[in-house]
Every structure is written in C-alpha cells, then in structure tokens.
Design a protein around this nucleic acid. Structure first.
Length: 500
RNA sequence: GCCCCCAUCGUCUAGAGGCCUAGGACGCCACCCUUUCAAGGUGGAGAUCAGGGGUUCGAAUCCCCUUGGGGGUACCA
C-alpha cells in the first residue's frame, strides 16, 4: 500500500528525547503505517546555542530504540542519512531558507526590522502597563528603501519580519475540526530570520514542510495558536497548505503540560529503569487514543493497523506511571525466554558494576529462573532486587529477622536445625523442588508447627528476604551447598547468647 | 490581560440521539488460590456524564451560556 501521505517528526536537539516528542513521533509513525504513507525525521537545529550533538544522538537512538523507524532522515549508528529530500537537518538547509526569505522580501511579504532588543522590551512593558496584548508596534514596517539603506550604511543588520495582514485564518483540524483565528491576535509582524541571518522555527518549519512535501502536520496541541502563522507563510510562499492535526498534550499528574520539573520526561530514564519498548509504545498510544474495543495490549504493528487519527481524544491526558508499570508487566510476561534474557542482561551488568550483586548469572541460570521470576518483576531493572541473593556470597542476615512472628528464637533455632537435617539428607540428584517439600511438610506435621512459620524462617535465613519466589524453587536455584551453609550461619547466629 | 482549545469513575478511556438503571482498564477494597511475594480468578466501592438553559417524542451524545482546567502569547522550538 503506497500513498502520497507524508508526515514528519521534527525534534529539536536542545534536550534529551522527551516523552511528548516520542508520543508525537509515535502518532505520526502510526498514521504513516496505517495509510501507507512516509514517515520523515527532520532535525530542527537552528537554535545553535542550545543544540548539541549529544542530544541529537539521544533523540535518534531513543526513537530508534522504540522502533519508530523513519523512512527518510538522518542515519542512526553512523549510517548515512537517506531520502530524496536531503539534507534532513536544518542547519544544512540554510540556502533554502535564504532563498525563501529573499522571495518574501521581494514580494514585500517581509521587511527588515532594525529595532533593538531594548526598544522591543520597552514596547512590551508599555503594552503590559496598559493591559494590552504584546504585539510588534510596526516601527520598521513602513521604512522606505532609502531609510533601510541608511541603517545598513550605519552597519546595522536587520532581522526579517513577516507582514501579518488583517483577516481570519482557519483550517479544518483533523482532530478538533474547524479552528479559526483572527490575525490581529498573532502579535503583529513576526520575525522569521534573526539579525545574524539564522532562520527561526516558524519559518523553517514551513519551508521544510513544503520542500519535503509533507501532507499532514501532526503535532502537539501547543502549536494550535502557531498554526495561523504557518498557514500565512505557506500562502505567502505560494505553497499548498497541508492538513493539520493537533494532538492532545501529555500532562503532569496535576494536569499541567508535562514538564521535567514535575515528571520524569526523558525517555532514556524510562529505558534505564527497565521499561520495555513495547510497554512504552503501548502506553503512549493509549494516551489520547483507543481502538474503541476492550483490548489493551498491542504491539507496534497492531497499533499501526488499528490507528485512526480521527479517533484521537481532544483533551489532554495525565501521565499515569502505575498504568505504565502494569503494561510493562504485561509485556515482560509476553516476551519469549531468549528475548527476556537478552533484555535482562544489561540490567544485571549494571547491578554487578554497582556492587548490588556479586557476580553475573549465566544464561542457563537465568533461563532456569525465568518461570519463577517472570511474573514478579514489574521492570527489567527489578530482578537484582528480587533474587540478587542468588549471586552474592556475603549475605548478612539479622538474626531477629529470621524469627517468624509466631515463633521465638529458640523455636526458630530448633526448627532450622531440624530443617537443615532434612535438607542435608538430599543429594545433588534429589535437590529438586518437589523432592524437598514433602519431607519438610512431614517435619512440620511431626512437630505440630505451621508450615508457613518454618518456611518463612528458612526463607529469611537463606535469602535475607521475607518476600521471594516460591521457597523450594529458590532453594534449588541457590543449590545444596549454599543453602546448607546459609542455614548453618543462621543457626549459629541464633545460638549466640542474647545481646552478644 | 488577550487569543485559542478542552470537559464521562481518582487516572486512561468506550460512547458519533434511543442498545446507557453509562461499559472496560489502571489503582483501591474483599474473597478465592497460596509457604512469603507476585501472577491469576471472582466480586465490590467508585461518574446525578462540570453546572444551567434550550432543540427533540427521546441527549453523555446537538446548540447556547456559565464555571473549571489547559495551551499560546520570543530575534525558543
């Protein structure tokens, strides 16, 4: 399925990949996949002061990691950028903007403005004082050619302003239907090229969207009020105006626009915390959209099949981490063994490097463990916390913690001694969960104990934790020697004189 | 201030005039399962569909007003 539909995500490398950017990228991607269109990635790096190569890499890598691969745009991992409309980074497209600016100047749709920042500031404060909306006063709007020449002769370089004429600009937004805005609310003639010659966002975005034949501009709702400027520019440049669709914003839990201050916004942080790409994509998609059925768990591919831009919600959606975690659990349960092991590995390496575990488990150890840990890890990063005791040798357990609620230290001591004896009777061959359990249950019965109490004492003695995967599977993973050694250590700590 | 947008359980949402005594999911509570923790199962609490006017035989769904919330108001993107 091919179509002329072309959409783009145009991140600015002035910060790490933001959740909002990822979500907008996802919706563009899904729209492209659903319609057989083309998904373009363009870097908007004209804010030279704030753009960095590191941020650019973080953004590209992050989108790539999420699986939001672009059909045209810069390469990842040192690959060449590709596509018929290269280059795809704005600082490499300066001649295009210069040519477009020249055309606007020639047609008098734009003019040079020599106002100083001080003058502009003064204008703004005066307007605010009179409770008027800030807008450019038009000081340079009517300068004659001679006056402009005189200023240039003084060595002054003008910024380029676009003329905003009276009228109403409207469009049929794919998501919010008809929107109309009177141009008198645009703040007057706006700057499209800085005095230093670098072009500004509102200008480059239009020139590039036209040059790259973008048919649908799908972006955040925060751009609704900028859209008239863009439409005016498209028209002044003689371009066909694309379709627009403004997505609802992702909100902080308090309902304001998502910010670093109140939420974790960097995709890299979610990756580092062990969220899967499947869960993140699944969650983002459901922030503002739903398939209209009661299904909840979707792959990126399924989302592409079902996605419908017109069914996107209009109101903003608060970010709910609990729901993301639930979805992450859903996806961890769905990953196949080898995939899960591969994804767990980096997190184990990180834990080892941080000294949280003493050594790295092998693939086989991990594989054997999967059945009992899979449903107990909300994130890929939480495995060391769950069963790290398997890979650390110096386990120090507080004797008091070993004593179950209903038992005293003496009973616990006796219980562990008896349990140790029963367990020691097994050799390596019968060291299996279903072999270990029956004799211990017999022991409990013979002594009139409660299974839960003995099991809890063994659990804490051998793992140092009160919450673990099923006890006997855990002991098997731990191995006969270590289990007995840890029981010995616990017994010894319980027989030490009180207060010693 | 001005402009624009939005409005269904705490949260994400289903709902395109009668199928709605408003459905699902997350979270919460209870029970079941159970050696702990999870997972899973069952059930429950939770929304007078922001409020008020219309239109209509009939409105969560259409219109208006009010209120509330959000976004934008740069030689940032």
């Amino acid at each position: 399925m091919r179509s002329d539909i072309r959409v783009r995500i145009a991140p600015s490398p002035t910060g790490p990949l933001h959740i909002g950017t990822a979500r907008t990228a996802l919706f563009n991607y899904l729209f492209a996949r659903h319609t057989g269109g083309t998904f373009v990635l363009r870097l908007e790096d004209t804010d030279v002061a704030r753009s960095t190569a590191a941020f650019e890499k973080d953004i590209l890598d992050g989108l790539h990691w999420l699986g939001l691969t672009w059909d045209e745009g810069p390469g990842v991992d040192g690959r060449e950028e590709q596509g018929p409309y290269a280059p795809y980074r704005q600082m490499a497209r300066l001649p295009e903007y210069a040519a477009a600016a020249e055309r606007l100047l020639a047609t008098d749709n734009a003019y040079p403005c020599y106002c100083t920042p001080e003058e502009l500031d003064a204008d703004r404060t005066a307007q605010e004082a009179r409770k008027l909306p800030p807008r450019y006063v038009g000081r340079c709007a009517t300068l004659t050619l001679e006056e402009r020449a005189a200023r240039e002769a003084e060595g002054r370089r003008g910024a380029l302003r676009f003329r905003v004429r009276p009228g109403v600009v409207g469009w049929n937004d794919i998501i919010r239907d008809r929107v109309e805005i009177d141009t008198s609310n645009l703040g007057g003639d706006f700057v499209i090229v800085r005095a230093d010659g670098t072009p500004l966002y509102h200008f480059t975005v239009v020139v590039d969207d036209m040059a790259m034949a973008i048919s649908h501009v799908i972006r955040g709702e925060d751009h609704v009020s900028n859209t008239p400027k863009h439409i005016l520019l498209f028209q002044a440049l003689g371009y066909e105006v694309p379709e627009f669709g403004h997505l609802p914003l992702i909100l902080n839990p308090d309902g304001t626009k998502m910010s670093k201050r109140k939420s974790q916004t960097a995709v890299a942080d979610y990756i580092a915390q062990g969220f899967t790409r499947e869960a993140l994509v699944n969650y983002f998609a459901f922030l503002g959209w739903s398939p209209g059925t009661e299904e909840e768990v979707f792959t990126l591919e399924e989302l592409g099949r079902r996605f419908d831009l017109e069914k996107v919600q209009k109101g903003g959606a608060r970010f709910d981490r609990e729901r993301l975690e639930w979805l992450n659990g859903q996806w961890i349960r769905r990953l196949d063994d080898e995939e899960l092991i591969a994804r767990l590995f980096p997190f184990l390496e990180a834990a080892a490097a941080a000294g949280e575990i003493g050594r790295m488990p092998t693939d086989d150890e991990l594989r054997a463990l999967l059945p009992i840990v899979r449903e107990r890890i909300p994130t890929l990063a939480s495995l060391p916390e769950l069963v790290g005791f398997l890979w650390t040798d110096d386990l120090s357990v507080d004797p008091a913690a070993i004593v179950p609620r209903r038992w005293d230290a003496g009973t616990t001591h006796d219980g562990l001694v008896a349990a140790r004896e029963v367990l020691a009777a097994h050799d390596a061959v019968t060291w299996e969960a279903d072999e270990l359990e029956p004799p211990l249950r017999d022991l409990v019965e013979a002594r009139g104990w409660k299974a839960g109490d003995l099991f809890m004492a063994i659990r804490v003695a051998t793992t140092g934790k009160t919450a673990t995967p099923p006890l006997f599977d855990t002991l098997v993973a731990l191995g006969r020697e270590r289990t007995l050694a840890r029981l010995d250590a616990a017994i010894a700590s319980l027989s030490a004189p009180a207060g010693a």
